[in-house]
């Protein structure tokens, strides 16, 4: 994780009057997995197409793998693999034939091509159906075939647009594992999604994207601190002994920002780190009977919901997240 491989400065896309992507500035570092998260229609796909030179840039610059996609699209596209949203294949051709066609477009020679295709199909576990027509493939299989294409390409940068949308949980899980493998090989990955919890475990950094703008950017714990005010929510269930102020004792733990008594015997602590051990000690010290103690990791979902709620003006109790 050193030098940036994708750099955008003031990247803008306008269709007539409408500004779809509005002066984006970001860097994606080599080997990093970057999540571009936002609702549908936020301009994610347009941003990707500009990186690939597939749509004109209205203003600003983007440099991908050291090259300008406007002037050197072939060089960029040789290094970048793109898996579009709802990827399509030629239904009347087999999986291997589809890959052969794109491998030839990549300019790979016959020997390299065949070896790489066999290897890629094995990695996405499609070897058994390599010679079946794609028409018979499920959504998940098509998505994996799309990933196989990036593997055949030996892409330095993989751009995955909504890779898990429309997949069942099992396929999603498998697919994310395969992306994880790519990541371990040092491929820089850019994922867009609106399914946050799925990409949360993959992404090193995320950017929340809406209305063509990046609203916040950083690692998930960073965002949690900035958006939620704190990263950790600890639920304590303990029968308190009358006279001993349990809520006050819990509130006195260093790092705890807020204590809320959600029912007679349950408390919700918001803290900037995991305070379970201290909470347990506090309960015991108050002669309480601890029956349950749990912590929620900061969830991207919560950050996202909270963030956009706040943006749209329904500012609520920020600490009461997760």
């Amino acid at each position: 994780m050193s030098e940036p491989v994708i750099t955008a400065r003031g990247l803008t896309k306008r269709y007539g009057e409408a500004v779809v992507v509005d002066a984006l500035d970001f860097d994606i570092l080599k080997g990093e997995t970057f999540g571009l998260l936002g609702p549908n229609g936020a301009g994610k796909t347009t941003t990707i197409l500009m990186m690939l030179g597939l749509t004109e840039v209205s203003a600003g610059t983007v440099v991908v793998a050291g090259r300008d996609p406007v002037r050197q699209p072939l060089e960029v596209k040789r290094r970048v693999g793109y898996l579009p949203d709802l990827v399509g294949f030629y239904d009347h051709m087999t999986a291997a034939e589809n890959l052969t066609y794109t491998a030839r477009l990549m300019g790979l020679g016959r020997d390299v091509r065949e070896a790489r295709i066999a290897d890629a199909l094995a990695r996405v576990r499609l070897t058994d159906v390599a010679h079946k027509r794609v028409a018979t493939f499920s959504r998940g299989m098509r998505q994996r075939l799309g990933l196989a294409e990036l593997i055949v390409k030996r892409a330095e940068i993989a751009i995955l647009d909504e890779p898990t949308s429309g997949l069942d949980p099992q396929s999603t899980h498998e697919f994310l594992d395969m992306i994880g493998e790519l990541k371990r090989e040092g491929v820089t990955i850019l994922i867009t999604s609106h399914l946050l919890d799925q990409v949360q475990r993959l992404c090193d950094r995320v950017a929340l994207f809406r209305g063509g703008k990046i609203l916040v950017m950083g690692t998930v714990p960073e965002l949690a601190r900035r958006v939620l005010g704190a990263g950790f929510v600890v639920d304590v269930e303990a029968a308190a002994v009358p006279g001993k102020e349990l809520a006050a004792r819990l509130g006195a733990i260093p790092g705890v920002l807020n204590v809320q008594q959600t029912s007679e015997a349950t408390y919700r602590l918001t803290a900037d780190h995991d305070v379970r051990a201290e909470a347990a000690r506090a309960v015991v010290a108050a002669d309480g009977a601890l029956t349950r103690l749990s912590v929620d990791n900061p969830s991207l979902d919560a950050i996202y919901t909270r963030f956009f709620e706040r943006r749209t003006g329904t500012e609520g109790e920020i600490r009461d997240a997760a």
């Binding site: 709802l86 399509g88 477009l105 990549m106 300019g107």
Partner: peptide, 14 residues
């Protein structure tokens, strides 16, 4: 309509 266009054009061709 087959959604193959963007995938093909993402290969190094014009």
């Amino acid at each position: 309509n087959r959604r193959t266009l963007s995938r093909i054009l993402a290969q190094p061709i014009y």
